[in-house]
Computed example of a mutant assay.
Amino acid sequence: MIRLLLAEDQVLLRDAIQSLLQLSNHIDIVASTGNGSEALHLATTEHVDVALLDIEMPGLTGIQVAEQLKKGEEYDGKVALLTTFSRPGYIEKAMIAKVDGYLLKDEPIETLIESIVRIHEGERVISTDLQPLLFSLETNPLNEREVMLLHAVKEGLSTEQIAKAKHLSEGTVRNYLSSALQKLHVTHRHEAVRIAKEKGWM
């Protein structure tokens, strides 16, 4: 029996997936949560074989949880991401994190169960619909500081507010944001935020 952790922040969807997975004779859901930080804790305390993680969660994202589980010594199970998103940036981060599976939520439950079993047996499973994206991945051109400042722009902060919040000079903020705009081939900050989010780079 595969001991599974299910982490999904939408309660109705989590309950639905849990109910369907429990129909399998191969899977025992030993823990579930809607919070990434709690998922990280449960994965290392509940003797989990496979951690099935939604990408976008409060606390920590599924990718952040996956990165920590894969790097840590307290967890020796498998890690799979479950998502509705096919953004190249997410797939790139997932591959860098060396996750064992990247699965789509809208697949038939039989396919999801089969994928979990295959992942538990040591295979690396990527949903069929996502595989073409592996051959057209775009590397994120933004550095960490540029991503951080675009998050601040997304929050509606002005250059002056960003500078105060991040303990930078206004000139430094403008330079980093200008660099981000150039890399994304746009002229407006909010357009840069939109593209970076669509690509899964922030």
Results as ranks from 00 to 15, higher is better:
residue 181 L to C: 12
residue 57 M to G: 05
residue 28 D to I: 09
residue 99 V to D: 03
residue 51 A to R: 00
residue 82 L to C: 05
residue 21 L to E: 01
residue 35 N to H: 15
residue 19 S to Q: 13
residue 130 L to C: 10
residue 28 D to W: 07
residue 66 A to E: 01
residue 68 Q to M: 13
residue 116 I to K: 02
residue 48 V to P: 05
residue 140 N to G: 08
residue 26 H to D: 15
residue 24 S to K: 07
residue 82 L to H: 04
residue 132 P to H: 08
residue 165 A to W: 04
residue 27 I to R: 03
residue 169 S to Y: 03
residue 16 A to G: 15
residue 40 L to D: 02
residue 79 V to L: 03
residue 195 I to P: 06
residue 106 D to T: 12
residue 56 E to Q: 15
residue 67 E to H: 10
residue 140 N to Q: 06
residue 144 E to C: 01
residue 146 E to I: 06
residue 11 V to W: 00
residue 85 F to Y: 13
residue 194 R to Q: 13
residue 126 I to R: 06
residue 38 E to W: 06
residue 51 A to F: 07
residue 64 Q to P: 09
residue 185 H to F: 13
residue 152 A to D: 12
residue 82 L to P: 06
residue 26 H to Y: 12
residue 108 P to L: 09
residue 124 R to Q: 14
residue 128 T to R: 14
residue 123 E to S: 13
residue 152 A to C: 12
residue 69 L to F: 08
residue 173 V to L: 10
residue 172 T to W: 11
residue 131 Q to I: 15
residue 43 A to Y: 03
residue 157 L to E: 08
residue 97 A to V: 04
residue 138 E to R: 15
residue 7 A to L: 03
residue 56 E to S: 12
residue 194 R to S: 12
residue 112 L to G: 02
residue 192 A to E: 04
residue 156 G to A: 09
residue 18 Q to A: 14
residue 95 M to E: 10
residue 130 L to H: 07
residue 55 I to A: 01
residue 148 M to I: 01
residue 178 S to Y: 13
residue 190 H to A: 02
residue 71 K to D: 14
residue 51 A to G: 00
residue 112 L to M: 10
residue 72 G to V: 02
residue 37 S to M: 12
residue 54 D to M: 02
residue 152 A to W: 00
